[in-house]
Design a binder for these strands. Structure first.
Lengths: 224, 224
DNA sequence: CTGCCGGTCAAACGTATGTTTCAAACAGAC
DNA sequence: GTCTGTTTGAAACATACGTTTGACCGGCAG
């Protein structure tokens, strides 16, 4: 056991419980009892519950953002001046996520759910933490998206990026429950990789949809 | 004030606070003090906090599901045997939502955010409540989607529906914050109707994307 | 052995929560 | 006015939470 694995045990338990139940709904007592660790250990090692939440994100996000930067470097190098296509950009992102070394078989889906929760639950401190710690790869991704969709107006692109984020965060954030339902109803086993493989074409098609027409025409109410 | 507007004042305050902060993060004391009502009134009129949450949803969802059924009736009548197109189905849904009588100007976006939270926060009781109270219009919408996309496999269709739900719930759920950003960065005013007008084409294009290829081909790692 | 120090532990602290209680205020019927 | 059932009010209840405390343990340098 070398020094002390208490810190990792806490992080593991917290990660899993946060993903299952959300942040506010998970108490330190649940975490410490799942981790088989004394209650005070959290405040001793991390300082506060919020700091623990940040640490859970940092443990995954820091190596991930490095991997992602590499993937983007690779991609831009291969494209040699030409801006990467939308598909290439989206794939670079998902591949980076899937290739991360994972603590266990459901590591990625747990973390996707956490990211979804981070965006969804208002938790101001988390949002601030993520924005100021990981703004660089995020901005770079945004720039790539912009260069890959020059035909879109700024406003259209802005909203469609939100739609993409939403579809991704939402799907991944409820993927456990959804996978349960899907297994029961259709008898299909689905991995995160397969979900991503379905998601990317959906997003790419949405991004490249015909230009938005602001007056919704394809509808004829009451009057035939 | 006629009989008692206490119930409505509580519902108004709860709706707004839940949307802003989530369910667990909103206490009964916040609600009752915003509603200028005694703390005990919630338990007196609703029985429990969970029952209050259900009531908030029911107040919007019950008339909405009726409106939606009418819209679907209309649509199917106009199509006369032929299954409605995907665009028609999506527009029937969004038009129904937008046309609901609204308590105030942000009524719809508040409620969209609530629906997103309902799906995202695990809150088992809420999910059960929604499923068993409003399964009928939901199933009908699913059937219409199925008939409008006969080319999709059941699994593909299932996931793409989840993507649609995600993009919608997520976008609407953070639309207030997003609209603020958008106004500052791009100087554009955007209404819920306009967001919907951008969202529907995005969703329709995603739903009708080329068939999913499960082995992601458009990527060439390391090897040129 | 002594002294120290990072880590663990049980227990307690203060606060906030959802819920309950019971008396007071109110409305309408007789 | 009096009675009756409903609604409000202030206060208390029990519980759960995040955090803090201070005693204790174990290894290691002097």
């Amino acid at each position: 056991m070398a020094q002390s694995d208490t810190v990792d045990r806490i992080l593991d338990a917290a990660e899993e419980l946060f993903a299952e139940r959300g942040f506010s709904e998970t108490s330190l007592r649940m975490i410490t009892s799942k981790a088989k660790v004394n209650l005070a250990a959290v405040n001793y090692h991390f300082g506060s519950k919020n700091a623990l939440i940040h640490a859970v994100f940092a443990r995954f996000l820091t190596p991930f953002s490095a991997t992602l930067e590499d993937a983007f470097d690779d991609l831009e190098a291969r494209c040699d001046g030409e801006p990467p296509t939308l598909n290439q950009t989206l794939w670079a992102l998902t591949e980076s996520a899937v290739r991360m070394p994972q603590r266990n078989e459901k590591g990625i889906s747990i973390f996707m759910r956490l990211l979804g929760l981070a965006y969804t639950q208002s938790q101001g401190h988390l949002r601030k933490f993520l924005e100021q710690e990981y703004s660089q790869p995020f901005s770079r991704f945004m720039r790539l998206l912009k260069e890959a969709t020059p035909q879109l107006s700024a406003v259209d692109r802005y909203w469609r990026i939100q739609f993409m984020l939403g579809a991704t965060a939402f799907t991944m954030s409820s993927s456990d429950a959804l996978q349960d339902i899907l297994q029961n109803k259709l008898g299909v086993e689905t991995t995160v990789q397969e979900i991503a493989a379905r998601l990317v074409p959906f997003l790419a098609a949405g991004m490249q949809a015909e230009d938005t027409m602001l007056v919704p025409p394809p509808h004829k109410t009451s009057v035939a």
